[in-house]
């Protein structure tokens, strides 16, 4: 508690200084922004929350944060309270796609712009929100496919570990990857099963794959956790992950970078949760009357084993 208090005190001083500085420069306004987050169910989401909070602190924005604990009703309540408090703008990471019309109409009537973070929604009238800022899952899959084709010299027997059936991340990452490797005759997906985005299932599925098909020499996992499970299965089968079998996955979490430094994972395509800066840029632009395309794509990067050691210390999630 004590440390918390002193941290708060430092924050207070810093923000006071910022306000002073801003006043001296003559900037007109201190923005008040509401952020309705889904919850804290994964490291990825915690990183996103941290990014929004720290960006707000850096820029001297007053942030009203609400954690919905995976419930849409909590998000709707939070949005209504933001509207009642007359915030300047709202960031929303929607937990589900449907059922947002009413509350977004209320925000629109109050002339409060809403920017969606990391997920989209289904509404008939798309003027209800400014835009969504998300990663492009199809691009991620494509980037993975292209990297693998280059690394394997256009010839590989690939085992694919899919995400949870029905999840947009799983569907689109599969689609993008297939599009990329369709150009190469030698790139074949020989086995494909779901590992439900988890480490334990990634391991179990890979274990079975290795017994069923001895020709597998590459793995494409829809997220890092499944790849980390697969790495264990490959080691237990007496093969060297990263050498005998080339492995690429998506997300770019810290554990994946550690595995790359250890030489066990070859590449990860990042799905960046640090949406704070671009989120505030867009929202404040919208408050000042700018318009944006309905989908602002967060730019992601591809990181391979060779660069991992250099990048690892800078990873925040």
């Amino acid at each position: 508690m004590k440390r918390n208090n002193s941290m708060l005190f430092v924050l207070l001083i810093v923000s006071l200084c910022l306000i002073l500085a801003v006043n001296v420069v003559g900037a007109p306004k201190k923005y008040v922004i509401g952020f309705s987050q889904i919850g804290a169910e994964s490291g990825w989401r915690t990183a996103e929350t941290e990014s929004v909070k720290s960006t707000a602190a850096e820029r001297g924005i007053e942030l009203k944060f609400a954690d919905a604990q995976q419930k849409q009703e909590n998000q709707i309540k939070a949005l209504r309270s933001f509207i009642a408090q007359k915030v300047d703008g709202i960031l929303l990471a929607p937990v589900v796609e449907s059922g947002w019309e009413e509350v977004l109409q209320e925000a629109k009537d109050a002339k409060i712009p809403v920017v969606l973070l990391d997920r989209g929604i289904n509404v008939k009238d798309d003027s209800l929100y400014v835009c969504k800022i998300t990663s492009d899952f199809i691009w991620e899959g494509k980037a993975a496919g292209e990297w693998l084709a280059k690394k394997m010299k256009s010839k590989a027997n690939i085992a694919e570990l899919q995400g949870t059936p029905g999840a947009s991340a799983a569907i689109e990452r599969k689609k993008g990857f297939e599009q990329a490797i369709a150009k190469f005759k030698g790139m074949k997906i020989v086995k494909s099963q779901t590992g439900n985005f988890t480490r334990a299932e990634g391991k179990q599925v890979m274990e079975a794959f290795l017994k069923a098909d001895k020709t597998i020499n590459a793995v494409y996992a829809h997220n890092d956790d499944m790849a980390l499970g697969a790495i264990q299965a490959i080691e237990e089968a007496g093969k060297k992950p990263g050498k005998d079998i080339i492995i690429i996955s998506i997300d770019g979490v810290k554990a994946a970078f550690e595995a790359m430094v250890a030489g066990k994972l070859n590449c990860t395509v990042e799905c960046n949760p640090l949406l704070g800066p671009i989120g505030f840029d867009t929202l404040i632009g919208a408050i000042n009357g700018k318009t944006y395309p309905k989908w602002v794509v967060q730019k992601d990067g591809v990181f391979s084993m060779e660069t991992a050691a250099k990048v690892l210390p800078t990873r925040k999630y």
Binding site: S192, V205, A208, A212
Partner: peptide, 13 residues
Amino acid sequence: TTILTRGVPVEVT
């Protein structure tokens, strides 16, 4: 294990 080894499509597992 049978399903995983034989590669039954995810949708019908």
